[in-house]
Design a protein around this nucleic acid. Sequence first.
DNA 1: CTTGACCTTCCCATGATGGGAATCCCCACA
DNA 2: TGTGGGGATTCCCATCATGGGAAGGTCAAG
Lengths: 129, 129
Amino acid sequence: MNIGEAAGASGVSAKMIRHYEAIGLLTAARSANGYRVYNDREVAVLRFIRHARDLGFPLEDVRRLLALWQDRGRASAEVKRLALAHVEALETKAESLRTMAASLRHLAAHCHGDARPDCPILDDLARKE
Amino acid sequence: MNIGEAAGASGVSAKMIRHYEAIGLLTAARSANGYRVYNDREVAVLRFIRHARDLGFPLEDVRRLLALWQDRGRASAEVKRLALAHVEALETKAESLRTMAASLRHLAAHCHGDARPDCPILDDLARKE
DNA sequence: CTTGACCTTCCCATGATGGGAATCCCCACA
DNA sequence: TGTGGGGATTCCCATCATGGGAAGGTCAAG
C-alpha cells in the first residue's frame, strides 16, 4: 500500500502522514523505488492518531497514548490520567472562549447597530486600563 | 516615552509592539538615536489592541476595529456586525471543545483507571472507522 | 570610563496543517 | 516504444500570535 492509499484508508492526508513520520510517531518501510509502504498495522496507527486528534489531544499526548496502546503491560490509570488532564484543558479553554463570547455579546447588545457612530463596543475597547 | 515604558503603560510587550508596527497596526516616531517614541495617543491604541485581543479578536479584525474606532463617521452597525460574527466564531469553537471534553469524559468514566491494561479510551481511539 | 539597563534588527521556535515547486517513478494506451 | 498522466519524493514557505535570544548601539549613573 502506497501513501495515497494509506491516506484514503486512514483519513489522514499524505502530507500529515509524512509529517507524523518525521516527528517519529510512525515508521514506514520503503520499497525499491523509495516509496513508503504501509500495511494494515500502520493504517491502524494512523487511524488511532486521527481519532486522538479529533478529541483535541496535542501530538505529544498522542505520542504517549500510542506508546501506552502498544504497551500490553500498561496500567489504564496512566491513560485515564492523561485523558482527564486533557479534559481539564479542553474545558478551561472552552470556558475561556465562552466568557469572551458572553462579554462581547453583552457589549453588542447595547450597541445600536445603526448608522450612528456611538458604540459601547469601541468604548469598551478604548477604556483606560 | 520609549518602548519599554509604552509596554508598561499599555500592557503590551515591547516585542509585540514592534510586531504590531511591522504589520501596520501602529506607527511610531523615532528619536535621533533610532529609538521608537510613543505618546498617550499610541498607548491608547496599544491598549485598544490588547483589549480586542483579550476578547479573542484576530489581528485582522483588530485592524478593522481600529480603523472604525479612528473613523468618526463610522456606522456602529459595522462594528456590531464584526463583533457578532466573532461571537459566533467563539461560540462555535467553544462548543466544539465542549463536545470533545464531554466525549472524552464519558470514555474516561468507563475506564477503571487502575493497574489493569483494559481501557475503553484506547479501545475507542483504536476503533476501525 | 565602566557598567548595566535599555534599545535596535534579525533569525528561530512554537503547533498542526497545507500549498506548491522541482524531480522522479510507474502504468496504460496508441 | 514513446508519451502522458497520476502519484510519489524532498524541500521551502505560509499560517497565527507570541516569545527567546544573539549581536550590537545608546544612554545615564556611579
